[in-house]
């Protein structure tokens, strides 16, 4: 708990400008400053909705956090999530038992992670273009499997995996999310592997000469990321009981952006699971406030543009902070 408060403090100190925008927007939503909008920002259904929609992205963000801390990047998580959803549903529709279908899909995630790791870590190719290409390839495979139609399932047992309500309206998906966040937090903070991830991201050469197996550590981060991405895909498919091959279109950049809001840098070496979770919740609140304000009904295509503006400004600030530190040294 002490670590949560500390992370919260550090994120709040880091993202002052962002917080200011957020507070103004929430205030506007709460006090109905826009005419003709009847906001329900502070209502239980809205928060449950927010929790549900954040849970899947949070699972994705945990893997991405580990990769970013190790100074890598994985932009294939959108394609991986979409493909995992398609594959798991098609297997279940084809009569494969649910546990076997889930295990095989997670295995598929690990295989994709291994390919990413092999080419970008062992062959030393630029990870973001490799994983961008991988995302395109995975989306293409998903489209080929489904003919670009959404896949639906009528197996109620599978839908229950994410939707079963355990505590009032809170679904079990939230528990899965908390387990993943807890596992990544535990791994980064208490295991030697976690320390190695920070060391590799902080200074690759120093880590190498300190005797850390840098290649294996970096490779493992890609495996973890692809694993969480396929888990997120399975959860999304279960939540909606349907899957689409283009579900993950803008996801990778949104996730990277949220992780950076939380204080993980795209240059590696800093960050943490709790911080990323806070960053994601802040960004989720912002998008939610936009929706509550019904800004989108004023100008129908604003949300996409605003997402772009937010991504640009947050990553601009991240780069700018590094520039300031470089100049200070």
């Amino acid at each position: 708990m002490r670590d949560v408060t500390r992370s919260l403090k550090s994120v709040l100190a880091l993202q002052k400008a962002f917080l200011a925008i957020l507070l103004v927007l929430i205030a506007m939503a709460v006090f109905n400053l826009f005419p003709a909008t009847n906001s329900q920002f502070f209502s239980q259904p809205n928060f449950i909705d927010l929790l549900k929609s954040s849970s899947i992205v949070l699972i994705l963000a945990m893997g991405e956090t580990v990769v970013l801390i190790a100074a890598g990047v994985d932009l294939s998580i959108g394609g991986m999530m979409a493909l995992a959803g398609v594959v798991v549903l098609q297997m279940i529709n084809g009569g494969v038992p649910i546990p076997a279908a889930i295990l095989l899909t997670l295995l598929l995630g690990l295989v994709v992670g291994a390919i990413n790791a092999f080419i970008s870590v062992y062959q030393k190719a630029e990870p973001f273009i490799i994983t961008l290409g991988m995302g395109i390839a995975l989306t293409g495979i998903g489209q080929h499997l489904t003919n670009a139609h959404p896949v639906t399932s009528s197996v109620q047992d599978f839908a229950n995996i994410a939707n079963f309500e355990i505590l009032g309206p809170v679904p079990i998906l939230v528990v899965f999310m908390l387990v993943v966040v807890g596992a990544i937090y535990w791994m980064l903070r208490t295991t030697s592997f976690g320390r190695n991830v920070y060391a590799v991201g902080g200074d690759y050469d120093v880590a190498k000469y300190s005797g850390i197996n840098v290649l294996r550590t970096k490779a493992a981060t890609y495996l973890i990321c692809a694993f969480t991405a396929s888990l997120a895909g399975i959860m999304l498919a279960s939540q909606l009981n349907s899957a689409s091959s283009i579900a993950g279109d803008n996801t990778p950049l949104y996730v990277v952006c949220a992780v950076v809001v939380g204080g993980t840098s795209v240059a590696g070496g800093v960050g943490g699971a709790i911080k990323s979770a806070i960053g994601l919740i802040l960004l989720g609140l912002l998008t939610n406030a936009f929706q509550m304000l019904r800004i989108d009904s004023l100008v129908s295509y604003l949300p996409q543009g605003l997402l772009g503006v937010i991504i640009v400004s947050i990553l601009w600030l991240d780069s700018y902070g590094r520039k300031r530190r470089r100049e200070a040294v």
Binding site: M134, I136, A137, G140
Partner: peptide, 8 residues
Amino acid sequence: YVQFMLRG
């Protein structure tokens, strides 16, 4: 779709 995949 296969062409899209091949591009990646």
